[in-house]
Design a protein around this nucleic acid. Structure first.
Lengths: 202, 202, 202, 202
DNA sequence: AATGAATGAGGGTTCATTCAT
DNA sequence: TATGAATGAACCCTCATTCAT
């Protein structure tokens, strides 16, 4: 939560308590539940408790809402990951931190926004894609850096790009079948995902 | 290809040479490229070379086209997998066959339809979901059976359900970054995916 | 029934046993049940047991079917009325015959066609309207003649045109509330309608 | 006209000056002239002077417009009839008032709506039919009450239900042949209709 | 006569967006 | 800022009609 207050403070993201902030949250949930195209601006307005016309005082158009949702989602996820990395010493601990963070991003409060990064990419026009992509690159670079360290430490031997690609798919897909209130904890899920790419100690 | 002729022969799928068959193929590509919602029936008609109204001689509505695409995609994939399994003896060979088959389904001729099974699930109404789900269960059961055999042979020690879930995500996600005309062959990709879940021989 | 065989014999109406005859009957029922606009040629074709394209071997277009239905309905009704008049001697008996005949036309076998004469008049183009109108004028003339006789006999004192107009409305409207299998017989209904316009004997 | 201002005031009907009110009036006329099915929402919009999409801010769908037209027509007719009854003392005067009112409803300003009650009943779905039917029952009950009084006074001897049915048909049918600017006045027409059911004084 | 795939104009309806209030 | 009526293009789908077979 501290992460979010900081991002709000430096103006990177919208205050979730503000009208615009609520709008982003509601939109994220609706976009993720029904899909971007099947969500109308009236749906969002109703959810927020305003009228459809008022939305356009906050965003120039519908696509900008999606873009805002994605931008904030990736910014938050990046910050959370940075904070977690700051506390992890060994390469393995850092990798574990990343996996855990990503799963938390997927299944946590702003999981909707994070899922949209994968599922609604096409709904963004070129300009917005470029904007979000730049932010996602920062996020991905954190991953690649850690994976390189892990590989240098001899814990994995697969190409790091490949590992990350496989992991992106495997983790984001948990959205379709893993639920926080099920039998398995997120901790356990992260551990299993780790086992997937790190050779067991001999 | 023999697999397809057989399926056409017993009426399971539409003859790809027929008007309806072409319609399914064009629709699959458009749905996968632009998304189901952003693809209009006029788009499809134009692609096929007919008029929009003519589509509804073959399908009662737009959703039924998507359903048809998915149904045929999963039927073809299942048949191909069965054929491949028939030629594989050892558990490891069988697993490799499955991975290779799934990647071929994703990146091959009816890759569009296969991708839609993952990405446009929500665009199907309850009835159509049930219909396709039943067919997908058959497909998934082939996977679980082989994974059980592989596990019994001691090649993996993770829960087979979990392995399959991770693999579904990792493999389907290759759609976004792997291309047949790139540096890596599909054979190599399959090999790397196999390494992900099977412990290397010590 | 004799009336119909005669009309068939001289070519005035289509043989009800023929394909075209069945088509007219089915169309009449559907037009009357669902309305002309809401009845599709496919509806009619399905009912008859042929395919939609085949209809146009019998009729140039949909409106011509309606026109055919109306024409035959009024021809049959006129013939029946003529036959009934031939058996009635006194003015009152003749009037009673007309009322009874009209009610039989409304509630009998070709009641659908007769109802359409009132309800779907607008669905006919000018040419078809003129054609049917000419036939209807013959029918109406029979009424006016008898009404004049009845008036001459002192049984009614209202303007005959007005009487006929009131009667047209009152009788055709029975279609909405009177049913042959109800408590009242058609005979009784006719008697009540007669009482409406003929002064009771003093 | 006072009647209408009252109904507008208590929210029973739409203000005829408002956009929605104009819409109802235009729709009524078009529905009655061309038929419900042959009237497009674009026709209505053009007549009102708005665009087709704007209609759906006032009504959820086309059928709801027809329902609105009918509901207002029967509400106005009922109110007018109540007002007229309040001024009539004797049973005969009350009956004459009803006949006159109904003819005014048929041929007056909202005659279109009143005609639709008879002619486009089928175009309403079950729910809308039930809604309008409930209002029509109120209207019809006024008729039956008065007819019972008239019968009790010995002015008619036919079953009142039957009288009303005959009268509904006879009066509504005047729509097809009587015109206010013709030779006969509405007053005279009402008088003739009265003569139809009330025994002349001996 | 019958078929049935194809036509293509037109239907009702949706919805992101605008703007005067 | 917020409203909500109005816009107008675009959507899916219908259906009378045609025509090669």
């Amino acid at each position: 939560m501290t992460v979010i207050t900081e991002l709000v403070a430096d103006g990177s993201i919208t205050n979730p308590e503000s009208a615009k902030g609520k709008l982003i949250q509601c939109a994220a949930r609706l976009f993720n539940t029904k899909g971007f195209d099947r969500t109308t601006v009236r749906d969002i307005a109703r959810e927020v408790g305003i009228l459809s016309g008022s939305i356009f005082h906050h965003f120039p158009n519908k696509e900008a809402i999606l873009c805002g949702v994605m931008r904030e989602a990736v910014l938050i996820a990046t910050s959370k990951m940075r904070a977690a990395l700051a506390l992890a010493d060994t390469p393995e601990a850092r990798l574990q931190a990343l996996i855990h963070c990503e799963l938390e991003s997927i299944h946590g409060l702003n999981g909707d926004g994070f899922a949209l990064l994968v599922n609604e990419w096409r709904s963004l026009g070129p300009d917005n894609q470029a904007e979000v992509l730049a932010l996602r690159d920062v996020y991905e670079q954190l991953w690649l850096d850690v994976l390189d360290q892990v590989r240098a430490a001899g814990l994995i031997d697969m190409d790091t790009f490949l590992v990350r690609r496989f992991l992106v798919g495997a983790l984001s897909n948990t959205y379709t079948w893993f639920h926080l209130d099920g039998d398995m904890t997120l901790q356990q899920l992260a551990h299993q995902a780790l086992k997937l790419i790190v050779r067991p100690d001999q």
